[in-house]
Each structure stands twice: as C-alpha cells, then as structure tokens.
Design a protein around this nucleic acid. Structure first.
Lengths: 144, 144
DNA sequence: GTCAATTACATGACTTTGCATATAATTACA
DNA sequence: TGTAATTATATGCAAAGTCATGTAATTGAC
C-alpha cells in the first residue's frame, strides 16, 4: 500500500519548498540572519514601503509576529518605520541604507544558490513550474 | 523596476505552498488540530512506524520539537512510542486506533480540499508539477 | 455631526520552537 | 575488550510565535 503523503501534492510542495531553501537557510544561519529577517529584507528590497500586515502576508507570518520583527530590525538599524500621512493608523516600513546593503548581499547569494539548484532544470520546465504555481496561488487566494 | 521577489522562484514556491494549504489549515484550526499534529498523523497513516528524527524531517520540524510533539500526542492518545528492540536508542512512533481514526477523517478532508484546489489544473500540468518538484527535491537533498 | 462598525497596528499572556547540550546506546578501532 | 567516536533521543532555557484583546484612526449610516 502506498502512503497517503506519497500522493498528496501539497505535502510534496511544502517538502520541495523547504528542501530547496534549506542550504541557503543554513548560509543565513551562519551569518546570524534568521529566515524571517531574510524574508523581510527581500520583500522590501530595494525601496519598497509596506505596511505591517502586508509584510506579514508576504513573509508567511502573523501580524503580531511582524510587529515584533520590525521592532527588532529597527533596533538593529536595518529598517525604518514611519506613519503614513493620509491614514495615521497605517505604518510604512522600508529599508535603511544599511538594510539595503545587507539585503543586496543576501540577494546575490540567494540568486547564486537558486541558479545552482535549478541548473539541471530546463528553461521550459521553469516557466511551466512558475505558471502552475502562480495558477495555484491565484486560485487559493481567491477562495480565501 | 521589478522587485527581487517577483523573480525569485523559491519565494513563489513557499508562497504557493502556504496559500494552497491555508484553507485546509483553517479547517484544522477549527477542529483544534495544530498543523504540526496534522503532519505527524498524515506521515504515520495508516500503519507506518518512524523514529523521532525521521518524523521531524518529514514534518519540517527539528528533532527537539518533534520529541515534544510526540509527548503531547501520546498524552492525547493519538500515538504510541516504543523502543526498538535491535537498537535501544531508537524509538518507533506509530498511530493508535484513535490516531488512525482521526488521521483518516482529516485525510479525507485534505483530499477533498486538494481536489477542489486543483480542479482547474489539467492532469498533464499536475504530472509536470510533481515531476519538477521531485527533481528539485532530489537535487537539494543530494547537496544537503 | 454623532456614534457604531471597521481597519491597522500594538501588547499582555501564554505556547511553541530550537539551539546547545546532556544522556544513553551502539560502533569502530587499537 | 577498553575507550573514543558516533548516533538517537531528551531536556534546560532563551527566543520567537501567536491568540485574544486593547488602542487609535478612519469610515459609514443616519
């Protein structure tokens, strides 16, 4: 009998995603950069400004987690938080010069890692993968 | 200028994976079943026996986390832990009858959710997706 | 314009996670 | 066989995550 997880595509997706990022995440760990920090830096690079909740969505975290992450990153000097003029409930988070620098370095490394990982895969397959993933995302976001 | 994350496939993968599972994870939450618990049940269903570390790998958690998860699940009566005869360091975790029952119910729901989610996607695309993901997993595991 | 509903973020209390390390069993090798 | 290295799991503790809720700003209905 085949196991359930062997035929469950969502299991394969999460496994593949985790495996694919594992090596890079080890590199991050060696630099002392938590994965959540990496995600935030990558989202804001180079000059995006985002609200807390928006950032939380992009970074697969909950809003209270993001509030605290941003506190830490401000303390470390990597991001700025400023209130939005039009709507003073909202907050805009963006990278500082130091943050841009760190993000740039990490992104370079991430690109290298990705190129290495996907080296064997044909351009055609990559395009197909992107397209199916995008379709899945659209469909699941629409339903949510 | 396009943002980095818009061209970073690993970002798309983690987003798509999270989005795809989000609705089912909400169902789990309503039942009071944590995602990690679900993963453990799904891995062991129906009659697999696995060690702690092996289970941790499958469930995207670290070994100390898994030890504690298993403690909880034993307390709740969903799994059993017994020492392996040949090697008394090792432990074999498996589902109890109650665990099998719960896992079965959840798996049914997961399958329904998956079918719904992937309804629009052609069989061909699904096969292609599986194949590319498997390739990525192999390659990244090999390097790890 | 007033007040209820909504939206966005912050915070208190608690839980979960995971690093570092301890413990225990097995293996390797001199 | 005695001892060092290795392997599998457990545990102390500090950090990170999140649920429920609080606070403040905005919107909407009347």
């Amino acid at each position: 009998m085949t196991r359930f997880i062997d035929n469950y595509l969502l299991y394969l997706m999460s496994q593949a995603s985790a495996s694919a990022s594992a090596i890079f995440h080890e590199d991050l760990a060696q630099r002392g950069v938590p994965v959540t920090t990496w995600r935030i830096l990558a989202c804001l690079y180079p000059d995006q400004a985002m609200g807390i909740s928006e950032l939380a969505n992009h970074c697969l975290a909950k809003q209270p987690t993001m509030t605290r992450q941003i506190d830490r990153l401000i303390e470390q000097g990597f991001v700025d938080r400023k209130n939005e003029d039009g709507d003073r409930r909202r907050v805009k988070v963006s990278l500082t010069v130091t943050g841009i620098k760190l993000a740039g370095t990490l992104i370079k490394q991430a690109r290298d890692h990705e190129a290495d990982l996907l080296g064997d895969i044909t351009e055609e397959d990559k395009v197909a993968l992107k397209s199916v993933l995008a379709k899945i995302m659209l469909r699941s976001e629409g339903a949510a």
